[in-house]
């Protein structure tokens, strides 16, 4: 369970987050939505300790962010990092292998190798295992990164706008993989999404944010409504219900 208590954050003098209180139960896919500048990515970065907390408190299970050793947290919570452009020389297997670093600290055991093989297989990357990242397509790279976070074997996985630059096929396949991680591997997924339709189609729970505050939390059916979209995004697209899923007409 991720518990956020009285969390506020400023960059310079500009308030980014104001008194956020949020509880995310274990399991399932939670989507953070909201307009640009709502503070979604900042909230995610704070939970993942990429940015130090200014005021407030975040706990993940029994670990307090900022107080618990960072390498202990790395075995409980993973964030999908943007490493592609900094490490073009890595092979897919090497990148996925980094997911085991929090456990072996540079000296992989047989078990670590087995987990990397399993991650490669799960994400259908075995044929690409020895290719370099720079030779892969955007979708394949994204899949390799998710495989790395999968190999990290954490209960919680955070993703910050993972669909950026992905076409519809790669986006749908990534979302399906995340759903599967939540369903069959009982991981807890928290994901920042720009496209409400993806949130409505794949998330169990949606958290809507606006100007640094949480406006609403609930199931896609409860959140994706004409009134709420108008309120959060200041625009009035039509919402349809198709086969029980909410869809926003753009």
């Amino acid at each position: 369970m991720i518990i956020v208590t009285d969390l506020s954050h400023k960059i310079g003098t500009a308030p980014i987050l104001q008194d956020i209180n949020m509880t995310l139960e274990k399991g399932g896919v939670t989507a953070l939505i909201g307009p640009n500048g709502a503070g979604k990515s900042t909230l995610l970065s704070l939970i993942a300790r990429l940015v130090p907390i200014q005021t407030g408190r975040i706990t993940v299970d029994d670990l307090t962010i900022g107080a618990c050793p960072t390498d202990v947290l790395a075995r409980t919570l993973a964030i999908l990092p943007q490493v592609i452009d900094t490490a073009p020389l890595l092979s897919v297997r090497e990148l996925v292998g980094f997911g085991r670093y929090p456990y072996h600290k540079g000296r992989p055991t047989a078990e670590d190798h087995a987990k990397v093989d399993y991650a490669l297989e799960t994400f259908q990357l075995t044929p690409l295992a020895d290719r370099r990242l720079e030779t892969l397509s955007g979708g394949q790279r994204q899949r390799a990164q998710v495989a790395m976070t999968f190999a990290q074997d954490t209960d919680y996985i955070l993703l910050d706008e993972p669909l950026n630059n992905l076409d519809i096929a790669a986006s749908r396949s990534l979302m399906a993989i995340l759903r599967d991680l939540a369903a069959t591997h009982s991981r807890t997924i928290v994901i920042v999404l720009h496209d409400i339709n993806y949130a409505a189609a794949y998330a169990d729970q949606i958290v809507a944010m606006k100007s640094g505050q949480i406006v609403a939390t609930g199931s896609p059916e409860a959140i994706v409504t004409d009134r709420l979209l108008q309120d959060v995004f200041q625009t009035d697209p039509k919402v349809h219900c198709l086969n029980g899923k909410m869809m926003v007409q753009v």
């Binding site: 990429l50 960072t70 390498d71 947290l73 790395a74 490493v83 980094f98 540079g106």
Partner: peptide, 21 residues
């Protein structure tokens, strides 16, 4: 430091994610 350097080379965010400061 050599293994930690491998991780640091991935960039600060990836390093934090893997438990390095």
């Amino acid at each position: 430091m050599r293994h930690r350097l491998d991780v640091l080379a991935l960039g600060p965010d990836a390093a934090i994610n893997l438990g390095e400061n």
